[in-house]
């Protein structure tokens, strides 16, 4: 058996952490706040990718999962004065349990129907948060004044980066195990996976639980950073597409790809703001995404490795060898 951790891959992860930890010493607070948004988006995109990018079950209801974690921890801490050390884990647990109860039956259906059912879940929770116990959920206005975990851009930068890094590293390690291998195989040919003696229903459930865990962590921590939540923003189609586009634009079925996609998208939208202050910015990012899908559907991460291969003098198109990117994929 090949080792999960190689010296090269560990060194690359350490280098990544060191570079990212050095940024607060070099950049301003505005830049750090954009990074924080990007890190949370990266967590959502990785969560989406574990389920949809790997297994091919495209979820249009990911804000639903993020929403459970967000609402659960916000209600527990804001309405019931529960300490964050308890409300955050309970929020994550609620995401996994609530998500499983609703999503699990949907895993029996495939392709477009799965996507539509998950989209319906998002709409369902959007409506429910407004009409069921608005005294708890805050109804259409949501909740504001939610307690922060820490204050200041630098502290929140390290907190959000730490979360993203731990999640990314854990997922990367998981995907390099036999289990991760089988998860990726489902997206390519589920029948063939069954033919290898693997129970794909259990495997999909596992992928979903991991996806819900990550979405729950992202949702629970982000609400304590932003300090407020509003159902219109949380269960919004733009938020959904931003998650999906971040994963796809960076490189689906990789761990690095969704992180690159999230950073690229967040900075693109922020740096366009002075020139295009309105929602027209989304039009520009739509064009960028479209061009990437048309000409490089495997995403920015694959483009990066093509450039590296060219620099090394390898002919990338002759034999597609998965070792070149395996070190950090």
């Amino acid at each position: 058996m090949e080792k999960i951790f190689t010296t090269r891959s560990i060194l690359l992860w350490i280098l990544f952490a060191v570079v990212m930890c050095a940024i607060p010493f070099l950049a301003g607070k505005g830049f750090l706040r954009i990074c924080i948004q990007a890190f949370f988006l990266a967590i959502y995109a990785m969560s989406w990718d574990v389920l949809s990018g790997r297994t091919g079950y495209v979820s249009f209801g990911h804000p639903f999962l993020v929403g459970i974690g967000t609402y659960a921890t916000a209600i527990l801490s804001y309405r019931f004065d529960m300490p964050l050390i308890a409300s955050i884990p309970l929020g994550i647990l609620a995401t996994m349990i609530g998500g499983t109860i609703l999503f699990l039956p949907a895993l029996r259906i495939k392709e477009t129907y799965f996507a539509l059912v998950t989209l319906a879940f998002m709409e369902l929770i959007y409506q429910l948060t407004q009409v069921v116990r608005p005294d708890l959920t805050g109804g259409t206005r949501g909740i504001s004044g939610i307690e922060s975990i820490t204050t200041g851009a630098i502290n929140n930068y390290y907190l959000s980066f730490g979360l993203m890094f731990i999640i990314a590293f854990s997922l990367w390690a998981l995907m390099r195990t036999r289990l991760g291998n089988a998860l990726s195989a489902i997206g390519m040919n589920e029948e063939a996976v069954k033919g290898c003696g693997i129970n794909t229903t259990k495997l999909k459930l596992f992928a979903f639980l991991v996806s819900a865990l990550v979405a729950g962590i992202g949702g629970a921590f982000s609400v304590h950073y932003f300090g407020s939540l509003a159902p219109r923003n949380l269960f919004d189609i733009n938020f959904l597409f931003t998650i999906i586009v971040a994963a796809l634009i960076g490189g689906s079925s990789t761990i690095i790809g969704p992180m690159i996609g999230a950073l690229f998208l967040t900075f693109l939208l922020e740096y366009l703001r002075p020139w295009v202050p309105g929602t027209e910015r989304f039009f520009i990012y739509g064009i960028v995404a479209l061009l990437l899908y048309m000409y490089r559907p495997s995403g920015i991460y694959a483009i990066f490795w093509e450039v590296v291969d060219k620099f090394k003098g390898k002919n990338a198109s002759s034999i597609k060898d998965s070792t070149s990117i395996q070190g950090v994929k």
Binding site: N181, A185, N189, E191, A192, V193, G195, G197, I198, S322
Partner: peptide, 19 residues
């Protein structure tokens, strides 16, 4: 064959070997 086309030969074999 019905292989997993974006996975290496080695990874295809490992999926078979899970059980």
């Amino acid at each position: 064959a019905h292989l997993f086309p974006y996975m290496s030969v080695y990874d295809n074999l490992l999926v078979g070997g899970i059980t």
